[in-house]
Amino acid sequence: MTTKFDLDDFDRRLLELLKNDARTPVPDLADAIGLSAPACYRRIRRLRSIGAIEGEVAVVAPGALGWNLSMIVLLTLEREGNRTIRELMAQWAEHPQVVECAHVTGDYDFAIRLLARDMEDYADLVQRLFSDDDRVRQFKTLVVIGEARQHRSKKAA
């Protein structure tokens, strides 16, 4: 689903800077885009209110919380219906080990990003989420070896 926002060049540059580091002080942001600090602050408030800024979070290394394995699960349903898709996405979104879930086109119905403490934890997780669900025809797991993360702050890297 795509949402259209009424943004100008200042807004887009501001969003790009905030995407890289949401902790950047407003005066620094204002200097970088060529506005006064109060004008920049008003724009940030507006961007939050219209939903262009959905939230601000700490990007925590999964290993710091004991999630040492990252996997991508490609999943196919027995039958792809709107109700089933909504139910499964809601169910998976509630699970803390599911960090991303996308309904996709092509050979698979879903691409799901999972975290697990170890292989035993992973086996228990996929048994509960996928193997025991009659709506799931099959799934394939890809273990992530390494990754480049776009949302990591340049200051923190």
Rank of each mutant, 00 (worst) to 15 (best):
K19P: 00
E54T: 14
S131Y: 14
P27E: 10
R42H: 03
R48C: 01
V59D: 05
E78I: 13
G66Y: 09
V126T: 11
A116Y: 06
L17Q: 14
F10D: 08
N20P: 02
Q97I: 05
R79K: 02
H103I: 05
H103Y: 12
R23E: 05
L65W: 12
L69D: 00
Q91T: 14
P62R: 11
D107L: 15
V126I: 13
L125F: 14
I33E: 13
G146V: 02
E100H: 04
L14N: 08
G81M: 06
R43N: 05
L65C: 12
A93N: 10
E54P: 07
Q138A: 08
T2H: 15
G106T: 08
P96L: 00
V73Y: 02
A30L: 05
I33N: 08
H151C: 09
W92Q: 02
P38W: 00
A123E: 11
A39S: 11
G63I: 06
L74C: 11
P25T: 02
E78G: 13
G81K: 12
F130D: 01
A116G: 08
W67D: 07
H103V: 06
V136S: 04
D118F: 06
T3Q: 14
Q127R: 12
R135F: 10
G51H: 01
Q138M: 03
V60K: 05
G34M: 06
I33W: 06
L18H: 11
C101N: 03
V144M: 12
A111Q: 07
R152I: 13
S153T: 15
S131R: 13
I112H: 01
V104I: 15
D133V: 06
L14Q: 09
K4M: 14
R128I: 13
R149S: 14
D124F: 14
I44Y: 00
D107I: 15
A30K: 01
Y108R: 05
A123F: 08
R135Q: 13
R43E: 01
T141C: 00
M119G: 04
L129C: 08
F139T: 00
M89E: 04
Q127A: 08
R152E: 11
S49I: 02
D134P: 13
S153W: 15
R43C: 07
K4G: 15
L77P: 07
Q150L: 13
Y41D: 00
A64C: 15
M119N: 09
D134L: 14
L69Q: 04
D132K: 15
F110W: 02
D31R: 14
H151R: 09
S70Y: 03
T76K: 01
D107W: 11
E87N: 03
W67E: 05
G146E: 08
W67M: 10
M1A: 05
L18P: 09
E120W: 06
A58H: 06
R13I: 03
